[in-house]
Design a protein around this nucleic acid. Sequence first.
DNA 1: GCCAACGTTGGC
DNA 2: GCCAACGTTGGC
Length: 156
Amino acid sequence: MKYWLLKTEPNAYSIQDLANEKKKTTCWDGVRNYQARNFMRDEMKIGDRVLIYHSNANPPAVVGTASIVKEAYPDHTAWDPKDKHYDPKSSEENPRWIMVDIKLEQIFAAEIPLPTLREMKPLAEMELLRKGSRLSVQPVRKKEFDAIVKKASGKL
DNA sequence: GCCAACGTTGGC
DNA sequence: GCCAACGTTGGC
């Protein structure tokens, strides 16, 4: 089983929006970065665990967890000229972008803000905390995932 | 709103 | 294949 972190801007789509979905499940559409796509396409499997991160928020924070419930399939929003993430180079015959479905596991009672993440020793090498890191879909080490969930449960 | 750090595009 | 110009991300 693998561990991941997915970024979302709460202004556009927050973890509360996910909680409000039927079955607390949503398709993770709109990813338009090759490295992020490749992680979703090649490595994400049903049952993998996910940290949800609110970027461009006050403060930016890890706000909860989810899991993968459907593996990679074409992102149809790329074919819709009216969609914000429309890409004319993607077609039904040759889809360039893909998405997965995720299901909410838990919203942390207390989110973990970025400054706190930076103080946590087990997260010293975390991709999210690297200077200039912009990847919206990124792998997370088990010890990083566990440390964050443990912190959120108030056991640290 | 600013701007540093990236990623992509396209001329050559 | 290089690289300048441009667009985007995301913390502050």
